[in-house]
């Protein structure tokens, strides 16, 4: 239930982020026991490179606390959509915070908004939509893969978000977003292999007073076809972009400063104190606080295509 609002202490059933390092975080469920493959109920022990954690021990602990592991320690953090996208079980390729942030901003999602999303996928974006629109809005999220829809529905429930979301198992390209959703949406988001097929359904789902549209697609041809349909249906403010986040690697670097001046003077002129003293002198080092890019950066996530459905476009 730890996704609903900020809370201070871990309660049983919370999802908790066990933070070991920037590159090692795990989402664990704060339950004292689990059922193993043989069907036996056993104590919930979580293994980490720094030793094991008896999960029961963290229940009641304050979020942000340090917890001891058998060979080290970790911190327990309250989950939120950012930490969740970094730890969630991947059922599909997911969208990350930089793109998601732009999607929320461009779709103008705020408390009270009604958002239609397809597909649900691993639910990373859904969690963001839910944070942004609760407690007064609603998310309608669709996936054509039945198991994924079921998993997502279950997850939202365990996260305390069930009141604000409806999960549908449905092929929206062919069947649309159900007629109940005609004209209810402030915003529609598509992450589909053929977004152009779903644009007419998005058009129907948006309010008569207008709304915002977004499609995320890895390939430029998907955006091209999508824009083609958007234009025909009377969308405007059509805009495509990509957002790539770069992380800076910060470290202190030292550089030897070499002396070349002494070469101008003949050695013989300083018979004693020359060479040996030079080589024995400690190397002069200059220190710099530096930042640089990591060796590998994300070069592409997807193209974001945004559009506005203006008010009062007749929906035939």
């Amino acid at each position: 239930m730890s996704f609903l609002k900020p809370k201070t202490h871990i309660e049983q059933g919370d999802i908790v982020i066990l933070y070991l390092s920037v590159n090692s975080m795990h989402a664990i469920e704060a339950v004292p026991t689990i059922v193993n493959k043989k069907g036996e109920t056993i104590a919930h022990i979580f293994q980490t490179p720094y030793g094991s954690l008896k999960v029961q021990s963290i229940i009641g602990v304050e979020y942000g606390s340090r917890v001891e592991l058998s060979k080290g320690y970790a911190h327990v953090l309250q989950p939120n959509p950012e930490l969740w996208t970094q730890t969630l079980p991947h059922r599909t390729q997911i969208i990350y915070t930089p793109d998601i942030s732009m999607i929320l901003h461009q779709l103008e999602v705020r408390p009270g908004a009604v958002v239609v999303e397809s597909g649900t996928g691993s639910g990373s974006l859904s969690h963001y939509f839910l944070r942004a629109l609760k407690p007064t809005g609603h998310l309608h999220t669709f996936d054509f893969h039945e198991a994924r829809a079921d998993q997502a529905r279950d997850e939202f429930k365990r996260h305390g978000l069930a009141d604000f979301v409806t999960v549908y198992h449905r092929d929206v390209c062919n069947l649309g977003f159900t007629s109940e959703l005609d004209g209810v949406a402030d915003a529609v988001f598509l992450d589909l292999p053929a977004p152009d097929l779903a644009v007419p359904h998005a058009f129907k789902a948006l309010k008569l007073s207008g709304g915002r549209f977004c499609s995320f697609s890895p390939c430029i041809e998907q955006s091209q076809r999508c824009i083609n349909v958007l234009t025909k249906l009377g969308f405007n403010e059509i805009c495509s972009m990509e957002v790539l986040q770069q992380e800076s690697v910060i470290k202190t670097r030292s550089f030897p400063v070499i002396d070349l001046e002494f070469l101008k003077a003949p050695k013989s002129s300083e018979p004693n104190a020359n060479d040996d003293s030079k080589t024995k002198e400690p190397k002069e080092l200059k220190k710099y606080l530096t930042s640089s890019n990591p060796q590998v950066l994300p070069g592409h996530t997807g193209f974001l295509t945004f559009a506005t459905l203006p008010p009062n476009v007749p929906k035939a």
């Binding site: 933070y19 091209q224 495509s240 957002v243 770069q246």
Partner: peptide
Amino acid sequence: VTNLHLTSNWMRTYQILPNRT
């Protein structure tokens, strides 16, 4: 403070038009 990240962004908009993308 933990999980420190220093980031910046590269943002490009696209012209998507038939044959002129």
